[in-house]
């Protein structure tokens, strides 16, 4: 009792610190609300028969009719989902690559060379997909360098890779891997650095060779990081991203390259069907968040640690 009085006397009319911090944070909360939460109200349009130009109040409430419409458009939906899941699945299969690359980097004793490799291989991560497209254009277009080399070697290059319908998925995957492999390896390089050095010393004393050390110490040491990355990748299954598929889209590969993110764009912007596009985006976000939280619960159960 005496203490509170003394506090009162000392602080006088000054506002409690916690309240002050709270009040100062309000503008930030409003800002975040305006830019990240207000757009969520747009989801309401998925339940109305909306046409651009009208106010939502003038539109008819149609319940889940638009979702039914999406499901009824079976061929298109199946094609888009096939492309989306195919890209995600190939991406999952490619997940060991950055791990292997990180292990290789770790085996390079010359630190200058190691840094050089790391610097050059992470560069592609820092250019936009538009630039990746121009580089790919310079290499793979009908008079690009690689195409010309293939021609000189007598290979059949009537369809250059940019317009090759058969190899769209693997080509897009390769481009994505080119862009992100070096960057993706950094996280594993960091976790290798975190492995207890005593384990390596002990293995050395026991006469383990390089391969045995990698096999029995490094790789098991990377399991937890790999597991987290895999869960994140799985929960991002529906989010292939928009930019890559947008810049590489062309009529020759259209049916193979159209992933969900591109579909949302095409329906919304090119065909101007706002409600359908919004409904699609809404389903995508809800499924992704559900997946993420499921993955998180799984992680908690298996490792006792959450990922988000």
């Amino acid at each position: 009792m005496r203490k509170t009085q003394r506090e009162k006397g000392l602080i006088g009319k000054r506002m409690p610190e916690g309240k002050k911090f709270f009040l100062v944070s309000i503008p930030f909360v409003i800002f975040v609300f305006a830019f990240a939460y207000i757009p969520l109200f747009g989801w309401a349009y998925a339940f109305f028969d909306y046409r651009p130009g009208l106010s939502l109040l003038d539109c008819d409430f149609v319940g889940f009719k638009i979702f039914a419409k999406i499901l009824n458009n079976k061929n298109e939906l199946i094609r888009v989902m096939r492309n989306t899941l195919a890209m995600s699945f190939i991406g999952l299969l490619g997940m060991p690559l950055p791990v292997i690359f990180a292990i290789m980097l770790n085996e390079i004793q010359n630190s200058k060379f190691r840094k050089l490799v790391q610097t050059t291989t992470t560069l592609p991560n820092f250019i936009s997909w538009i630039v990746v497209f121009t580089l790919a254009f310079a290499m793979f277009s009908s008079d690009g360098l690689v195409t010309n080399i293939c021609k000189a070697l007598g290979m059949d290059v009537r369809n250059n890779l940019l317009g090759d319908n058969k190899h769209v998925w693997i080509f897009q995957w390769a481009l994505g891997t080119w862009k992100s492999l070096g960057w993706g390896a950094i996280i594993y390089v960091a976790s290798i650095a975190g492995i207890d050095a005593e384990l390596y010393d002990a293995a050395h004393v026991d006469g383990a060779n390089r391969w045995q050390t990698i096999r029995h110490i490094t790789i098991p040491g990377l399991y937890p990081t790999f597991f987290v990355q895999m869960l994140l990748q799985i929960s991002n299954m529906l989010n292939n991203g928009f930019e890559q598929y947008f810049v590489f889209y062309n009529p020759l590969v259209a049916n193979k390259i159209e992933v969900l993110d591109y579909y949302v764009f095409r329906i919304g912007v090119l065909t101007n069907d706002y409600p359908q596009s919004i409904a699609l985006g809404m389903c995508k976000t809800i499924i992704s968040v559900t997946l993420l939280f499921t993955a998180n619960r799984l992680s908690k159960k298996v490792r006792g640690e959450s990922i988000v």
Binding site: F22, G42, W43, M282, K284
Partner: peptide, 23 residues
């Protein structure tokens, strides 16, 4: 800070929710 956890979560959640292109 008053409501510290609530406010922090309110902001952090925006990493995972995405209203979509058209909204």
């Amino acid at each position: 800070m008053y409501f510290r956890k609530v406010i922090y979560r309110f902001v952090i959640i925006t990493m995972y929710i995405n209203a979509g292109l058209i909204p």
